[in-house]
């Protein structure tokens, strides 16, 4: 009878062995984490499995190749709001030199980042910033204010500054989008008294739900003139709903998204403008900045940074500025391949 107790253990054995065989082929760095003397840069997107950050990662990998640094790429695979903090805290104990992070939660992540700084790890933020005292530099493609104002201005331009519009966001709790919404509403109050925000709907980061919400919004609000989609799957979702309703051009669509996902709608005149920056360049510049900060080449007070193929990039205070967001329209969308 006792012998049967060994069988489960035997069954478990191949599993554990398999695991060890698979991974021990990689260099064993347990005792000498920095034996290679390569600068280790850890790159933390807001979420994984997201085409926007995949494009960022592509640029990041290119820069790492040029600079000869080691890149660690990891990020949240679910919507747990504590996940980014946990990854930063784990990287602190892993022994990385620089952490580059796109913050999901501006204040929430500041604590772990400050603790990492105390341990001598350099912090660079990109895409969305944390509090300024928790990082050295922010690679700034656009501030929340810049994004919010660009979206609002574009929508106002398309609607001739009057009429009703609605917003489709990812989830009601997404911190960075709530930040954008704040600036959208501030701009609205300040500049466009004849425009009215009638509703804000979440789409759970899914195209189909964005489409369903837009269908309802259009029919429930006959005077609706514009849909503003502020998460990337929502832009084609909203466009499809407008197309199916036969309201192309009557209900305008503007949003933040990737050109490749919106090309057809832009060309058909369903979507008028998509706002974004050169995403791969953002990843590239972030790594260049992280490397320069990590090697001590870039310090607070510098006025510019030499960023490989991007040339000299200006620094404003502690913001490294990639450039303003692009507005993609049907005329220029073919020039972009991401």
């Amino acid at each position: 009878m006792k012998r049967s107790q060994f069988i489960p253990a035997l069954l478990a054995l191949p599993f554990t062995l398999l695991m060890s065989c698979e991974k021990s082929s990689a260099p064993v760095g347990a005792d000498h984490p920095k034996a290679a003397k390569k600068l280790t840069i850890a790159f933390l997107p807001k979420s994984k499995g997201n085409s926007y950050f995949i494009a960022c990662e592509k640029g990041a990998r290119e820069a790492v190749q040029e600079l000869g640094a080691e890149l660690l790429f990891d990020g949240p695979t679910n919507t747990d709001p504590a996940k980014q903090n946990e990854i930063v805290e784990n990287w602190m104990t892993l022994g990385v030199d620089v952490i580059a992070v796109a913050c999901e939660n501006r204040e929430g992540i500041a604590g772990p980042l400050k603790r990492a700084q105390e341990k001598g790890i350099k912090i660079v933020t990109f895409d969305s910033d944390t509090t300024p005292d928790a990082r050295s530099f922010f690679v700034n493609q656009a501030t929340p204010q810049g994004i919010g104002e660009a979206l609002m201005d574009e929508a106002a331009r398309l609607c001739a500054e009057e009429g009703e519009f609605a917003i489709i966001t990812a989830t009601l709790t997404a911190a960075n989008m709530n930040e954008w919404r704040k600036f959208i509403e501030a701009r609205l109050a300040e500049r466009y008294p004849k425009m009215k925000l009638i509703d804000t709907k979440p789409c759970d980061d899914q195209k189909d739900k964005a489409q369903a919400e837009t269908t309802n919004l259009i029919s429930a609000n006959p005077n609706l003139k514009c849909i503003m989609a502020i998460c990337s799957p929502a832009v084609p979702g909203a466009a499809e709903a407008v197309k199916q309703a036969g309201k192309a051009g009557i209900v305008k669509v503007v949003g933040l998204g990737l050109p490749s996902e919106n090309k057809a709608y832009l060309k058909d005149g369903v979507t008028q403008s998509v706002i974004l920056w050169r995403v791969a360049d953002l990843g590239y510049l972030t790594i260049q900045a992280a490397y320069a900060v990590g090697t001590g080449a870039l310090e607070v007070g510098s006025k510019s940074i030499h960023a490989g193929k991007l040339g000299e990039i200006q620094i404003d205070g502690t913001s490294i500025i990639l450039g303003k967001p692009f507005v993609f329209t049907k005329d220029n969308v073919d020039q972009f391949d991401f």
């Binding site: 369903a212 029919s219 429930a220 709903a241 309703a245």
Partner: peptide, 17 residues
Amino acid sequence: FAPHFFQPQPLLARLTA
């Protein structure tokens, strides 16, 4: 209270979805 709900196009789109 919301007769717009029964407009044919959105209704059809909702059902198909």
